[in-house]
């Protein structure tokens, strides 16, 4: 009997110490981790609307150029020009990739059809293949493309205004990105940035 009591005591003791240490570390690092995520988001939003920044003036640039609004529980980032005219609208898009969830930021002209920039916040695609969606040559392809009617990722030479090149060896990832963009923009247009809502914003 004594043996059993000792066994349980040891386990409880070790578990308690472990939980205590981890709890403490978790509480102390949580603000830093939150801040890291927030930074990444701000960087992506700024890049997607082609605003230059560096690690020192990120905060200030974001505040002075981007207006964040929460509409129906979704964050929307508005970028106004010098004259107060709405330049771009940016928001999150997400969906499943080939290996896991993909999250990104897309920015569009106020017509909600022309892509200005695309950035990925997180992805778990195959290194060297699907993960190349985060490389500049892939992302930059989207600049100026038009969702009219939809973005198409094509193999072997894109030509039309709505076509971009797929990544060789990562067809599934490329197709996922196509779906994430088309669905994300469509959803946003129908639910949040409706024609009415956009009309109100343009005249600000």
């Amino acid at each position: 009997m004594k043996k059993e009591v000792w066994m349980v005591t040891v386990l409880v003791l070790v578990a308690t110490i472990s939980a205590g240490v981890l709890g403490f570390i978790n509480v102390t690092t949580r603000p830093i981790i939150k801040e890291n995520e927030a930074r990444k988001l701000r960087e992506s939003v700024l890049s997607s609307v082609n605003v230059d920044y560096n690690s020192d003036n990120l905060e200030e640039k974001f505040k002075s150029t981007i207006e964040t609004q929460e509409i129906d529980g979704r964050e929307v980032f508005f970028h106004y020009g010098q004259d107060g005219e709405l330049q771009e609208v940016a928001f999150r898009i997400s969906g499943s990739g080939f290996q896991g969830p993909i999250q990104g930021i897309i920015s569009l002209k106020p017509d909600l059809q022309t892509i200005v920039g695309l950035e990925f916040l997180s992805q778990q695609e195959t290194p060297g293949l699907g993960a190349r969606i985060t490389e500049d040559w892939f992302l930059n392809q989207f600049n100026g493309k038009v969702l009219k009617p939809k973005i198409e990722v094509v193999k072997g030479g894109s030509s039309a205004d709505n076509e971009v090149d797929a990544i060789t060896g990562a067809t599934r990832t490329s197709k996922s990105v196509q779906g994430i963009i088309n669905n994300g923009v469509e959803k946003m247009k129908n639910e949040v940035l409706t024609d009415q809502a956009m009309e109100g914003l343009g005249n600000e």
Binding site: V21, I25, T29
Partner: peptide, 10 residues
């Protein structure tokens, strides 16, 4: 878990 949190933070 310590390593995991540490990497995420720093």
């Amino acid at each position: 878990t310590l390593v995991y949190i540490f990497l995420q933070a720093f």
